[in-house]
Design a protein around this nucleic acid. Structure first.
Ligand SMILES: [Zn+2]
Ligand SMILES: [Zn+2]
Ligand SMILES: [Zn+2]
Ligand SMILES: [Zn+2]
Lengths: 133, 133
DNA sequence: TTTGACCTTTGACCTAACTCCAAGGTTTAT
DNA sequence: ATAAACCTTGGAGTTAGGTCAAAGGTCAAA
């Protein structure tokens, strides 16, 4: 049984983060002390670690809410559901990667066309390109 | 000479966006009509296109403010300065790409380990992995 | 002349995921 | 006993780049 600061420290997050997760339905402390302090159980700690691992994998908090729902009643779901979520996330990421790669290539092309020398930028091809495509 | 709605329509942005750019020091209309309407010149239109092109290249508005400063007095800057900015941006992008690629690979690995079948997720390796690393 | 499409300003709201603050109550250590 | 270090709540602020609404003034067409 942990108080909020203890669990937070154990998982290297701030107490406010746990309150935030609670407010957003991701982690409810098992109970409260007679004076109203949040008391977290080992299961809660495990659930927090689940959340943090999923976050590190790139899932949003609302994705994680879904994963927690599934995890809470695994038998109601198929592997296909879970795998579908993960693959969708991977695809989403890939789409962003592609977009950023195109952007990076454009920038590199822009940079390559510039002499990069110490003289005045009056003739700079980068600025020219941005000025009039 | 354009009123705000005209310039906005010509560049496919909303009037509010132009007001926002003005508030943030990116684009000041050449003058105002006697009744207070913003009046944009052809130079302003050109500057807006500069802004939009730079944005499409992945520059943030504060990057663009810098670029506009340079553009406004090109002779005070060297090509090296401009190229440096562009290369820094490309590198920044590359760093994000690398990070997202690692994330995508982790997700793909996670997905690959799951059977993805229609039976219950009780044995799902994805959930197991997230539950206890 | 009256409708409707413009324009003005100020200021609130949006997403995401926290983070911080204030004002007060509690626990712990010396 | 008292000060430090915790805990509570509610609500505001952060970043980035807008987007919208309200309340009012202006302008062109029918
Ligand atoms: Zn040069
Ligand atoms: Zn150059
Ligand atoms: Zn399976
Ligand atoms: Zn599975």
């Amino acid at each position: 049984m942990y108080k909020i600061g203890e669990l937070a420290a154990a998982c290297k997050v701030k107490p406010d983060t746990l309150r935030f997760y609670e407010k957003n339905g991701l982690l409810n402390p098992a109970n409260r002390s007679d004076k109203g302090y949040r008391i977290y159980s080992d299961d809660d700690a495990q659930q927090l670690r689940f959340i943090l691992r999923a976050k590190a994998m790139g899932f949003s908090l609302s994705d994680i809410r879904e994963l927690l729902n599934i995890e809470a009643s695994r038998s109601d779901w198929a592997c296909a559901d879970v795998k579908g979520m993960v693959e969708a996330k991977a695809l989403e990421l890939q789409t962003k990667i592609d977009e950023m790669t195109r952007l990076r290539d454009s920038l590199q092309e822009l940079a390559d066309a510039c002499c990069g020398g110490p003289e005045s930028a009056i003739h700079c091809s980068i600025l020219d390109t941005l000025e009039t495509k």
